[in-house]
Simulated scan of single mutants.
Amino acid sequence: MLFSQLFSASLIFLTFGLAAATPTPKEAKLIKRTGTSSDIQEVFTTLKQTTDSVLPKIDSLASGGTATEAAVAPLIGELTSALNKATSSLASIDGPVSTDGGPSEQDIANLVAGIIKDVATTLNGLTGATAVPTLTLLLPGIDLALNQVLLGLDILLSGVLDLVANLLTSVAGLLRSLNLGLLLGTLGL
């Protein structure tokens, strides 16, 4: 008899104890998983898809001699918007991030450096376009947006900016000529 009462009391305690420890649906929404390097790679793959769409349009305008302020400004705006979206996407990833089972820091650094090189090369092609006198006014927005992306990346994968900087040493002069000072400062170039 005593055994059955103790067993019943234990069963009730375990049932209510487990029920109390199980998060309610409202609490369950608050539980976040830590991001992975695959999440970061997805952000930069999406950004690359956009830059691969926008940059050739700018290149075509510059090489064809048809680069005008009216034609280039919306494309620069689209590029800036894509960079800002990448920053927001990085901010939504819970970090710090592990590279276990996902792309390595070097893989991500290669992707990021490639995007920055592509952007710098395209912008450099516009510097000779006399029909875009406001280019110098548009570049600080790109500089700020690129810098914010890098800062978001650094929060998630501390130390990856050193890898990115090493990959960009060959275009540091180009970045300087474009006056991308925030980007250069963050990378230590």
Rank of each mutant, 00 (worst) to 15 (best):
G65T: 08
T136H: 09
P103V: 08
K85D: 06
P96M: 04
S98W: 04
K85A: 12
Q41D: 06
A9W: 04
A73T: 03
L90F: 10
T122I: 03
L90Y: 09
L47N: 10
K85V: 12
S170E: 12
R33F: 01
K57R: 14
A91D: 15
L18M: 10
L79E: 14
V97F: 03
D94I: 14
T169I: 15
D59I: 07
L167M: 14
D107H: 05
L47A: 11
L146P: 01
D100S: 08
L90A: 08
I12F: 00
L90T: 07
T34W: 06
N110F: 05
P133F: 03
I116L: 10
K29T: 15
A113S: 15
L153Y: 11
A113I: 02
G95Y: 13
Q49P: 00
A145P: 09
D59F: 04
S63D: 05
L18Y: 10
S170H: 04
V171E: 08
I31Q: 09
Q41Y: 08
L55Q: 09
L184C: 11
L151T: 15
Q5H: 05
D154Q: 15
A19R: 00
S177R: 13
A91G: 11
T68M: 11
A91F: 05
P140C: 04
P25Y: 02
V54R: 00
L183W: 12
L14Y: 05
A9L: 12
T87G: 13
I108S: 02
P140R: 10
V164G: 05
V72F: 02
N84A: 06
T51I: 11
K48F: 10
N179G: 00
L6Y: 05
P103M: 06
T50R: 14
S10A: 09
N110W: 00
G114S: 13
T121H: 11
T34L: 13
S81L: 07
A28Q: 12
G188K: 01
V97E: 01
K32P: 03
L138Q: 15
Q5Y: 03
N84H: 08
D100L: 13
L18G: 05
L61W: 02
A145R: 08
S53W: 00
T34S: 14
T186P: 01
I155Q: 13
L156I: 10
L90W: 02
T130S: 09
A86K: 04
G128E: 02
T36W: 00
P140Q: 07
A113T: 04
D107M: 08
L157M: 15
L6R: 08
L30A: 13
G64E: 05
L90M: 12
P133W: 03
L139S: 02
R176D: 11
G185R: 05
F44V: 13
K32F: 12
S60V: 08
L55V: 05
V119Y: 00
I116S: 04
S60L: 12
F3E: 00
A62P: 03
A120V: 15
D52K: 06
A62M: 07
L146A: 08
T68S: 15
Q49S: 12
L168V: 08
N179C: 01
P74I: 09
A91W: 02
V149E: 12
L163G: 07
S53Q: 07
S4T: 10
G173E: 13
D154M: 04
G159Q: 06
T34H: 11
L156E: 08
L55D: 12
